[in-house]
Simulated scan of single mutants.
Amino acid sequence: MALFDFPLPQLREYRLTRSEPAGFDEFWDRTLTSARSAALPPKLAEARTPLRGVSSYDVTFTGYAGQPVRAWLNRPAGVTGPLPVAVEFIGYGGGRGLPTDWLFWAGAGYAHLVMDTRGQGGSWRGGDTPDPDEHGAGPSTPGFMTRGVLSPETYYYRRLITDAVRAVETAAELPGVDASRLVVTGKSQGGALALAAGGLAADRVSAVVSGVPFLCDIRRSVTITDSDPFNEVVRFLRTNPPAAEQALNTLDHVDSVHFARRITAPTILSAALMDDVCPPSGVFAAYNAIPGDDKRIEVYEWDGHEGGRGFFDVAACEFVNDRLS
């Protein structure tokens, strides 16, 4: 993919000037209050793996509307003292897979809670958490971007973002965890969920890591890329033109830029200038919305949606270690 978005000097100054939807805070406060009122204590069961240096646990916690969400918890074997904890969210289409898929943060000395993604896990890594059908009624394009998109109340990402906040709250209560050192992390869709959880659970989050985040400046992003998942929205609007403003208003309720404005923790993002999946202008709009000075964006001029790969992982871990040590 060639360069297609604003040039880098303009990206560094780019900001979203559109206001968030009316009642944004009330909508999310009400949603999260309802989920918390239905919450049950998490369940942990030891998961057997051939690894000797990592202990793994199969976790079930309650997310949106008290619905069960699966997760893996990995932690360095034999370490009993309270550990910093990283809560990780997964990219579009993927699920939690196997506990042996997630070794980076445990290898860095963290407890590591990996949240499964409701209804996903059928594209590139398997998942175990269903998304009850009754919540996503109405017309939609195949995929998840337009599932229930005619109302913020029924929209798929309302449920998934609620799960992410509840994952943070669950991680803070796990045994052997230092809740004062809690990181949210993810890439692409996972990066969007890290920004959302970082904003909605700002009082619990100590650092945010968001690689090439999705759902940023959605109204612009759907007009400048032909790639999915944003193109799912275009196909939906093409076949349902009278519903365009209604759907876009729903999408405004999950735009990562609005959550970024509420982040108070140190934050590191990555942007890739050839990324046609999560356009760099959206990523910079989210980055520039984050208040404060303790933030950094790693720019990968020649990358597409891989967004820095292991180079960003190392930079992010060093960033977090410096602030949580």
Rank of each mutant, 00 (worst) to 15 (best):
L200K: 05
S34F: 08
N288P: 14
A22F: 07
K187S: 15
E134V: 02
Y64W: 14
P152Y: 00
V277P: 00
G126R: 06
A38L: 14
G93V: 04
F230Q: 13
V314M: 05
L251M: 05
L215C: 11
S56Q: 01
F312S: 00
L193Y: 05
G95W: 04
N231T: 09
G81R: 15
G176D: 11
M145C: 09
D101W: 02
P21K: 12
A244S: 15
G122E: 08
L324A: 12
L3D: 09
G211N: 13
D128F: 11
D226Y: 06
G109L: 10
F312M: 01
Y57A: 13
Q10F: 10
G109A: 05
F24D: 03
T17P: 02
R75Y: 09
T264E: 10
T170M: 04
R52P: 03
G143Q: 13
A39K: 10
F104W: 14
H135Q: 12
A86T: 12
L8Q: 04
I90R: 01
M115A: 15
R220C: 04
A272K: 01
L83F: 02
D203L: 06
R96Y: 07
F214Y: 15
E169Q: 14
G292R: 10
A164I: 03
M115R: 06
E153P: 04
V234D: 02
A244V: 06
S206L: 12
G199M: 11
E306M: 12
V54M: 06
G148M: 10
P84H: 11
S140F: 14
R96C: 09
N321P: 00
T129C: 08
E173F: 00
V205G: 12
G190L: 03
R204Y: 05
D131I: 02
T250Y: 02
V87G: 07
E26C: 03
G176F: 08
L215N: 00
L269E: 06
T80I: 00
D252R: 15
H305G: 06
D131W: 05
V177H: 13
S188N: 13
T162R: 00
A247P: 02
T33P: 00
A272M: 01
Y156D: 05
F89D: 01
P68M: 01
G97P: 01
T170I: 07
T49F: 04
G95D: 04
S55V: 06
F61G: 07
L324Q: 12
G122Y: 04
F144Y: 15
E153Q: 15
P21A: 05
S325N: 13
L73E: 10
E88Y: 11
T239P: 08
A201C: 13
P266I: 05
Q246G: 01
Y157R: 00
G176S: 10
P280Y: 14
V299D: 11
G191Q: 09
T154V: 00
V87T: 05
V79N: 03
D5K: 03
